[in-house]
């Protein structure tokens, strides 16, 4: 069974982050939100496994402080 990876897995984290932020350059807030939505759907398709995605949804939920 596939598991959600929560240990470092990006090959070049700083490059990824810079590219992610740059992709939003010049977008309005609504456009950014829509961009993020499209991106999540694309990445979800790449993951493919619903169990992993469910685990990711849980991980992204902010715990009560």
């Amino acid at each position: 069974m596939a598991e959600l990876t929560l240990t470092p897995n990006l090959d070049r984290p700083d490059d990824f982050y810079a590219e992610l932020i740059a992709a939003h350059d010049g977008l309005s807030e609504d456009e950014s939100a829509a961009f993020n939505a499209r991106l999540i759907l694309i990445l979800a398709n790449q993951i493919g496994n619903t169990q992993v995605i469910s685990a990711a949804l849980r991980a992204a939920t902010k715990p009560d402080r």
């Binding site: 240990t7 470092p8 982050y17 807030e29």
Partner: peptide
């Protein structure tokens, strides 16, 4: 605003999950 949101998302996640720590800069 969006880069601020991402930045704080990284910090929130890094508190709990190792994977986000290399992104904290």
């Amino acid at each position: 605003k969006i880069s601020h949101i991402f930045r704080n998302a990284v910090l929130d996640l890094a508190e709990q999950y190792d994977f986000a720590r290399p992104l904290v800069n």
